[in-house]
């Protein structure tokens, strides 16, 4: 459990970090909380020659409101998100998701930016990002750009970040009106990652579902937004049977992963079940009264 040799630098500005990243290319890795990268290095599944430690760059962590958006710095830890009173009020799905990540030690060190950029297919926060339609601010040698969460995750551990880009900030909407949220997951018992995790937010308009976002993690090679499920329910009166039909669509065109912890078939089942349960829970918190759910 000893990593291969590597160098370690601690730039104090973002530009300095981007320059280092540009000049070292694929040989360099950014170090945030290190909770995904360091285990890979210890197992020698990753052997970067250089670690660019972002911890000394000011301004990369923190949570603030900007109008109808909440801004979360990339180096904000899971614990900071979990315990943020501001987020609990303005966008509760984030703290709801952050509080079930790993364990206390992981949440104390792990960061939202590190987790998203690492793009583990079973990471929890990705589901919330997709459900919320988050925007990700990215800085690179060519300047700055914004990516939508849906454009960000490309494949297994692969994102739309170019090798010299750094994820700096995440922006999610302030959830106003009668909103409900839920994140449900079945954790893999050893790692704590999601066998399947489903994040939902929805806005109620009377008994109608005015708008809804559904993000799914753990099921396939990358976390995804369950657009079909959303479409099925948007502007509809929520009924258990309708939610059940909609939830069944979560697995369409998805190739579920299978491993020693859960087969592809079981993961698909869990995705449907947890989508259903998460929507029901979000509807409940939005104050929509469903007729009694039939034993789901």
């Amino acid at each position: 459990m000893i990593p291969a040799p590597f160098d370690h630098i601690t730039p104090v500005t973002l530009d300095e970090a981007i320059r280092a990243l540009t000049s070292h290319g694929e040989e360099a890795k950014l170090l945030a909380g290190g909770h995904s990268l360091l285990p890979l290095m210890k197992l020698r599944l990753a052997s970067p020659k250089l670690l660019i430690d972002l911890s000394k760059i000011p301004g990369l962590a923190g949570i603030r409101q900007e109008g109808d958006k909440m801004t979360v710095g990339a180096l904000t830890t899971h614990y900071q998100i979990e315990s943020s009173e501001l987020l609990k009020e303005k966008c509760p799905l984030l703290p709801q998701t952050a509080r079930v990540i790993g364990d206390v030690q992981v949440r104390n060190r792990g960061t939202i930016g590190g987790s998203l950029a690492h793009a583990d297919p079973a990471a929890d926060l990705a589901a919330a990002m997709l459900a919320l339609g988050a925007e990700l601010r990215v800085r690179g040698a060519q300047g700055e750009r914004w990516l939508k969460a849906e454009e960000f995750f490309l494949d297994l551990m692969t994102t739309a970040l170019s090798p010299s880009e750094i994820l700096t900030e995440i922006r999610v909407p302030v959830l106003s009106g009668r909103c409900g949220t839920a994140y449900l997951k079945l954790p893999q018992k050893a790692s704590g990652f999601a066998l399947v995790g489903v994040a939902v937010w929805l806005r109620a308009d009377g008994g109608l579902c005015a708008d809804i976002g559904v993000g799914v993690t753990g099921l396939g090679a990358k976390p995804f937004r369950a657009v079909r499920v959303e479409r099925h329910l948007r502007r509809k009166r929520l009924e258990p049977a309708l939610i059940e039909t909609a939830s069944a669509e979560v697995t369409l065109r998805i190739e579920p992963l299978g491993d020693i912890h859960a087969s592809a078939e079981f993961r698909a089942h869990l995705a449907r079940l947890y989508t259903y349960r998460a929507i029901v829970e979000a509807a409940r918190t939005a104050g929509i009264s469903l007729t009694k759910a039939k034993g789901k």
Binding site: P39, L43, Q188, K189, A190, S191, D259, I260
Partner: peptide, 23 residues
């Protein structure tokens, strides 16, 4: 409830770290 050293038919350990072996 959780624990199992899983060897596959080739004798490879599929639960070779604490990320996969659940104590």
């Amino acid at each position: 409830l959780y624990e199992e050293v899983v060897y596959d038919e080739n004798g490879q350990i599929l639960s070779g770290s604490l990320m996969d072996y659940a104590v």
